[in-house]
């Protein structure tokens, strides 16, 4: 469904990720684990096309991904970046509407659906996104990514700086959309509990490469690996 093969890339002349290969099957939730600075976000940006690929390729829904990020979005790649990056001087409604309209979907209908799916956003619909709290912005960034009707959703640190009640809500929403709409999800996280609650499988990164592939059962048994990931 979604494949990254031999991904090598970085910023300028610095290479951050090297020969990363991973796969997310249809309607699967996969976690990307690893401590700070191992290249998780870089891998996400590589997959979206926002950084230049030195080597390797990306496959979305069976098609080889074109270079332009906008074209990858249209193939069905949804992206929720670390730090959210909502459009601050646009309203909540506009943030969702512009994503839907840019991919040829009905903006009004999508906004209505998203506001129904995320009741938290309802009362804020006409507020500027820049004025929302961190958790609200995270939910908005998720709604914006879902507005393009993705087949694969990339989430980069969705729990960072988000209050626990909203984290639970996000986990619930991810499970639901994964089951209802069969959206595959790749989530980069430091929050182990969050990952264990939603992902069936995980890749562990270290120094720009994947050094371990594991599943939920062995990860929840392996206390040593958990300690290492938590950086204790």
């Amino acid at each position: 469904m979604f494949k990254v093969t031999n991904a090598t890339g970085g910023y300028g002349k610095t290479t951050i990720i090297r020969d990363v290969t991973l796969e997310v099957k249809a309607s699967e939730i996969v976690a990307l684990l690893g401590r700070n600075g191992v290249g998780k976000s870089t891998l996400m940006r590589y997959a979206t096309g926002l950084i230049l690929a030195k080597k390797g390729s990306v496959e979305i829904a069976g098609a080889r991904a074109p270079a332009a990020p906008a074209k990858r979005a249209r193939l069905g790649l949804g992206y929720v970046p670390q730090g959210r990056f909502v459009f601050p001087r646009m309203t909540v409604t506009e943030n969702i509407a512009v994503a839907a309209a840019s991919n040829g979907f009905d903006a009004k209908e999508t906004v209505k659906k998203m506001l129904a799916d995320f009741p938290l956003l309802g009362p804020k619909a006409n507020d500027l996104a820049g004025g929302l709290s961190g958790g609200q912005q995270q939910v908005l960034a998720l709604a914006r990514a879902l507005a393009i009707k993705p087949k694969i959703l990339l989430l980069d640190e969705p729990t960072e700086g988000v209050q626990p009640s909203i984290i639970d809500e996000i986990a619930g929403v991810l499970k639901r959309i994964n089951q209802e709409s069969e959206i595959a999800i790749l989530v980069a996280e430091q929050n182990l509990d969050f990952c264990l609650s939603i992902a069936e499988r995980a890749y562990v990164m270290e120094k720009g490469s994947i050094y371990l592939e594991t599943d939920r059962e062995s990860l929840s048994r392996d206390k040593e690996l958990q300690q290492e990931l938590l950086g204790v």
């Binding site: 979206t48 096309g49 926002l50 332009a68 990020p69 906008a70 990858r72 979005a73 249209r74 992206y79 970046p81 990056f85 909502v86 459009f87 601050p88 001087r89 646009m90 506009e94 943030n95 509407a97 512009v98 994503a99 309209a101 840019s102 991919n103 903006a107 914006r144 990514a145 507005a147 393009i148």
Partner: peptide
């Protein structure tokens, strides 16, 4: 207008605008 929303999104967060499918 949709064009106006795209234009504002593109200047506020250029990379995100591309990542959600706006042909900047």
């Amino acid at each position: 207008t949709v064009y106006g929303m795209k234009a504002r999104a593109s200047i506020q967060e250029p990379k995100m605008a591309q990542a959600i499918g706006i042909d900047s």
